[in-house]
Nucleic acid binder design. Structure first.
Lengths: 387, 387
DNA sequence: TCACTTTGTCCATCGACTGGACGAAGTGGT
DNA sequence: ACCACTTCGTCCAGTCGATGGACAAAGTGA
């Protein structure tokens, strides 16, 4: 039973500082007086806090705004390039990384092929990637966020297991933190994607959302009450290996009929190859659905339906209304998405299902990188995404 | 985007007060100095806070403890009867309620038959129940907790719908709070049960747990990160109406093959009646399993297996290791429980499933009442169970 | 008996929020 | 051009509450 920590004066200060930063961040150019009104703090306290933030450079004054019958306010804004964050996406083929600013905008990107490296060699590759990303950066680095496949314990920064890289209980967070001297956060790739969707949602930010990445594997990231939820063993969201078909194909996890063996990329491509008699990647299936080919539509529908059933179970369990789909398989487009929605809606309790919004995320290519960085940005903004 | 509230000195004070109360509550007879060591607060602050708590009567001194080489410490203990809470269980047949102390011990119970009342008449029955429970109580009443079937929004205290009582968007929390002048918390019965399991777990308290009530309906209560999780529409845990069998029987919700139609009490009794040719209630099935009757064992196994599959999905989604089963159907005993465990373990991802602890709760009869009260006890102890 | 510990309280100090006052800088009316 | 009024940002005294050191009370062990 973890006792919560005591409260001190410094903590109230930190809390209020973050409250001010976040208000300025979310509500754009805004005066001190308006911040005070929004937060409930006194003008005095806000002024005091802002003075510190100006010194740190996180916030800057951008001139006076229109008067409303009195002295014109000095508008404040978060200086989005005053701090940098690095986000990494340790994919199966490539390790990619970007330098990202406080708005989640990507400033520079480097990508290195994995080329079969694993174990310590893969760790070296992470170092190489970071060295190249950090060369010549000027603004202070808030930290490094890492998104990786596999089971990850974000609290300790340990990768419990990542099969393709042959990592097992690797304390990557500590290793990288020691080398670069900044905070490091490690998260599962699906979880990172969920963080990106949540953090950078802007006005439309909602406290609960599920992001589901459908690629080779199927994984979900859960944002509950405004924070990433990892469960007791860091495995929350690992829906890809829930059995959905007792007579299904054998999965790489050893069981039969996991969701991944029906809705995953590999399964789709395998079925497509069988249907066409030749080789067929996801793009080919997509093209065929656009052409209206029955075999392709059937594949898309089946894959989408299986995912939809899994989503129905999630909705029933958690009653979360915002579900975002990400990853390569989303390329299958409308027929696939329609099947997902149909099954999800028809199998979950009606009053719950009616309110659900299932959509495809906008920036599938770099969500993981942005999500990894989101962890650090969020900390600066006081969103406290983990725990 | 709900802005968090500002931090003030009073809040730090309240925070630390609760921290002290909770420490004394959890760690039994304990000295001020030990509290200081446990919490990290200074002895000065602890003394100051404790003085206030002694004045309020929440904490009392119970004499000196053994010395460890210096002045003997004055031991403190939470005076468990210094505050009372009322918990109600608005069941289908009876409205039951108890006066409960700070340890969740039941001091007095009243039960009234519903006898077909619904709508406003049912609200009147709630009043009658409360009036009888409160008559003659001496210690200050912290508040009233209400557990009820149906969809409940705990934040507003509104019952969104409870079919059997014909309640729809009924602000029961406000109504009762206005009449009795104390805080009122309303929760779904499954959620209340989960709160009871969490709050009164003592040393074994873990931050995440799922309590599943299997009776006429099937519902789960989710405790995530030490707080009840209700989802966006207060429907989190409503797993009873997730479709598990497309060819299944028609459910009272209108769909086919909901979990409830396979694993619920009604379904079990119906199958038993068919098997025996006569009437058979749950007790009869239980007795028959003890006798080793094949038909009864088959029924128990099927019902347990269906529940197990639903639990596997929950484990995959949330990776929660503590699962507590409650409600009348748990009476089916070992054969049923074995089936639940077998299916849950065999269908969830191995590393997740291995750590799962599925057990039957201890006090099935009054969990709802105790859980309803837990909401208020927890508030006093600073556990902040909701939100 | 004495040196040493531990406990609980007292006191001076400090960090941080509060509320009122004030000058600066606007607006609008005459 | 002048004046009353408003709003903004800052300054200052006041207060709340945590902190750390000092101290008496009450133990232990040599």
């Amino acid at each position: 039973m973890a006792l919560p920590t005591k409260a001190t004066h410094q903590q109230t200060r930190v809390h209020n500082e973050r409250l001010v930063v976040r208000t300025v961040y979310d509500l754009g150019p805004i005066s001190r007086a308006d911040v005070a009104r929004q937060t409930g703090l006194t003008r005095t306290t806000v002024s005091d806090v802002v003075t510190g933030l100006l010194d740190d450079g996180v916030v800057k004054e951008i001139g006076r705004g229109p008067s409303s019958g009195g002295k014109a306010p000095i508008l404040l804004e978060v200086d989005q390039d005053s701090r940098l964050v690095v986000g990494l996406d340790l994919g199966e083929e490539h390790f990619a990384g970007s330098v990202v600013n406080l708005r989640g905008e990507i400033r520079r990107t480097v990508e290195l092929p994995v080329a079969g490296r694993d174990g310590d060699d893969a760790v070296e590759l992470v170092f190489a990637l970071l060295d190249r990303l950090l060369a010549g950066t000027t603004a202070p680095l808030l930290g490094i966020g890492i998104g990786t496949p596999g089971l990850v314990d974000s609290r300790t920064g340990t990768i419990r297991r990542a099969v393709n890289l042959d990592w097992r209980d690797l304390p990557l967070g500590t290793i990288v933190a020691d080398r670069y001297g900044v905070p490091v956060n490690v998260a599962n790739d699906s979880q990172a994607a969920a963080l990106a969707e949540y953090t950078y949602a802007g006005e439309g930010r909602v406290p609960n959302l599920i992001a589901i990445r459908v690629g080779r594997g199927v994984g979900a990231g859960l944002i509950l009450r405004g924070a990433l939820f990892q469960g007791d063993g860091s495995g929350a969201g690992e829906i890809g290996h829930t059995v959905v078909d007792d007579q299904g194909a054998v999965c790489r996890c050893g069981r039969r009929g996991c969701l991944e063996t029906v809705a995953g990329m590999r399964a789709i491509e395998a079925r497509a190859a069988a249907a066409t008699g030749g080789d067929a990647d996801l793009g080919a299936v997509r093209a065929a659905t656009v052409e209206g080919e029955p075999w392709a539509l059937a594949i898309a529908d089946d894959a989408g339906a299986a995912l939809g059933r899994a989503i129905a179970a999630l909705i029933g369990a958690l009653d979360i209304q915002r579900i975002v789909l990400l990853g390569p398989v989303t390329a299958l487009g409308e027929p696939w998405l329609a099947a997902v929605r149909r099954e999800a809606r028809s199998r979950a309790l009606a009053p719950l299902a009616d309110e659900v919004d299932i959509s495809v995320g906008r920036q599938p290519s770099n969500v993981v990188i942005r999500g990894a960085s989101a962890l650090l940005v969020a900390r600066e903004l006081g969103l406290s995404l983990v725990r």
